[in-house]
Design a protein around this nucleic acid. Structure first.
Lengths: 212, 212
DNA sequence: TAGATTGTTAATCGATTAACAATC
DNA sequence: TAGATTGTTAATCGATTAACAATC
């Protein structure tokens, strides 16, 4: 299905395609052409056709793409049908925001447990997920291997926690600490960063006009 | 100082340079060469010199770069010395996580107010920031113009809130809603997105092996 | 059928890497 | 001074755009 190596530029556009196709699908739209998508999304029709053609032939000449089919193909490419499992480390405000508000199941993830050191949280539930003590991570993962570890711990604990997750065989780490993880010490683990600080500084750059 | 148009690829690397140089600075390192930086950060020395040279000549042949100076130059390029002001819309879990834990001042931002509709929050403080009722946004911004609006409202309220902020003259919107903002209806406003869902789906792609 | 739109090949554009003279 | 390392120009690589034959 996949033809050769797919560039990360293409892959990072896939979730946006999915989001837009999902909107169209929910609005009852049946077909869409690459040029209509391009207009909606601020891309070129050429680029869209190139992107999709990395993965197969999803369209039909003279017609365009069936919205439901294309949405489904992209969901599958993204692995949304794999029923991935995840654990969350650090149930502070940010961890809690994810536990209580983020629709993991919508993206094909099952959140199996959260870990923290705060005694007032341990033993309870947040967003329907059981909270365990940090010391139990190892034994929990031995019994229930997880695909992804979500890092919402303080920056100081990030490297330690990442190493532990890697040692327990997670395939990916979703890193919310504003800290670079030592990826060469995490062999075989995909790291996806959400660096709030980098994002804010990028915005800061764009709103700071040239000095007079 | 800036030579021609700077590509966004370069700009998005600047915060990482800053972060690394700040680490070196705090560790007491005085000088660094492009090849040392390259080794640390997984880039090429060529790329690093190209990137810096977009903004000026910060190094010295035979010596390299002075860490403190380079860190300062990048901080200035990023606008970290501009004392930007910001308001936050939506003091749910995620908004609270930012209010209570994110070091805005470290990046040159002053968070002036938060807004929500929850009566148990309005009138109080979170992370040292006063919480006002949503209906007061307009009058507050008229009295205290802000550079950036931080959107941590539910997706359904995102477009409305963005329009309001744009109408009140913010220069940038830091968008945490997993929704695309209608940027053509926000003239002159820079939008910087943190799409948790896109990030998780990207990770999902990379941990989903080819089907047999 | 005629019109529309794909998938793909070729052309262009931009970003990264390599090389090296300048010089500290 | 000799060695090291920059800033910049040129070469390469990759990604985006354009064009068009295939075909629904």
């Amino acid at each position: 299905m996949r033809k050769g190596k797919i560039s990360t530029a293409v892959i990072r556009r896939l979730p946006r395609y999915y989001r837009h196709l999902d909107d169209l699908y929910r609005a009852g739209v049946v077909r869409v052409s690459s040029s209509a998508l391009a207009g909606d999304m601020g891309l070129t029709a050429s680029q869209i056709r190139q992107d999709f053609s990395c993965f197969g032939e999803f369209g039909q000449q003279g017609y365009g793409y069936n919205v439901e089919r294309l949405r489904g193909e992209i969901a599958e490419i993204l692995g949304m049908d794999r029923d991935h499992t995840a654990v969350l480390l650090g149930a502070g405000n940010l961890g809690r925001a994810l536990l209580e508000n983020f629709p993991f199941q919508k993206y094909g993830f099952r959140l199996e447990a959260a870990f923290d050191i705060d005694p007032s949280l341990v033993g309870g539930e947040l967003g329907g997920v059981r909270v365990y003590h940090r010391d139990e991570i190892g034994s929990f993962l031995r019994a229930h291997p997880a695909d992804v570890g979500i890092l919402t711990v303080p920056g100081g604990a990030a490297a330690w926690a990442a190493g532990l997750l890697a040692g327990r065989g997670v395939k990916g780490i979703w890193n919310f600490t504003n800290v670079e993880l030592p990826e060469d010490e995490l062999p075989g683990v995909q790291v996806e960063n959400i660096h709030f600080s980098d994002s804010l500084l990028t915005l800061s750059y764009f709103i700071s006009e040239e000095r007079p």
